[in-house]
Nucleic acid binder design. Structure first.
Lengths: 153, 153
DNA sequence: CACTACATGCAACTGAGTTGCGTTAAGCTT
DNA sequence: AAGCTTAACGCAACTCAGTTGCATGTAGTG
């Protein structure tokens, strides 16, 4: 085991292949970019990073691969309250779903897990007899630091 | 009082004007379209309905008016899980926030209010010291009728 | 009633994402 | 290992939603 981290590289690739999807040089690059991203990336950002590894990679391939990952539930698509235009952001689907909070002043994105959130989704599935495949809870507002800052400026 | 309904026409117009915003012929038309809509409309749909009243109205005016309403918190912008392309939908901001559920099979949109939802937002504000201005909780999945239908076809 | 600042309409533009198609290459099959 | 088939790739052209610049029109003030 050469990867002692909690989230070992290659796990996304492994899940991808275990679904019988064809692995290509380009997909390998894109998956590793998505997997190792430390922040939320949009398609253009993913392309830029992928091209540092393989300059031949095309933006169309990035879009097609992201659609594939989305359809297979391997990544989630986020809007992040459209703080910067209409583009989408992507993240590996986590074990446990979380809420995204976007600060309208500083643009910071925060994530928040909550029992209440899990219970709410359970309630929807039971009370509405609705089978949830994907969910997105995004919040726009003002973060703690911007709230205190706004009293000084 | 000529309007005995729960949601009397003109209330949106009244809120709009009470904010000191300039009322024009076009805005009056657009606001009444938004206010009386029985379903979630996108900008093109709002334009189409507005043009039935006033054919001179331009799509740019619709976009500008929707942006204005959004900035003033008088309407909410929805993605409805991007079931049909990337366009946005609009609804009057309700007294009590609700969740949108979009069926991936039949396209139906359902709304759901929940105490748990209200409590969850309260928790976010308290635990994260985050002041919520706007929130959007959208769910994609399969509705009750499509779940039972899918066993037969 | 006149003035001014803001709203409108038009046309041109932007930016994200998609499609068609000829070429390339995964990953089976033997 | 070579050949085969089917899917993925790269490129260019396109679509679609929404935005911007600017000249003209008009709401609301005084």
């Amino acid at each position: 085991m050469p990867f002692p981290q909690t989230e070992q590289p290659g796990r996304l690739q492994a899940e991808f292949m275990s679904r019988g999807l064809r692995m290509t040089r380009q997909r390998k690059t894109i998956l590793s970019v998505v997997e190792t991203a430390k922040q939320h990336l949009d398609a253009a950002g993913i392309l830029r990073r992928a091209q540092k590894v393989d300059p031949e990679i095309d933006r169309v391939t990035v879009y097609r691969t992201l659609n594939l990952l989305k359809r297979h539930g391997l990544v989630d698509e986020l809007d992040l309250m459209h703080l910067q235009g209409e583009k989408h952001y992507y993240e590996r689907r986590p074990q446990r779903d979380h809420i995204h909070m976007a600060c309208l002043r500083c643009g910071k994105i925060m994530e928040f897990e909550s029992d209440l959130f899990d219970r709410l989704k359970g309630q929807i599935q039971r009370d509405c007899r609705f089978h949830i495949v994907v969910s997105r809870f995004e919040v726009g507002g003002y973060c703690a630091s911007c709230r205190s800052a706004s009293s000084n400026d």
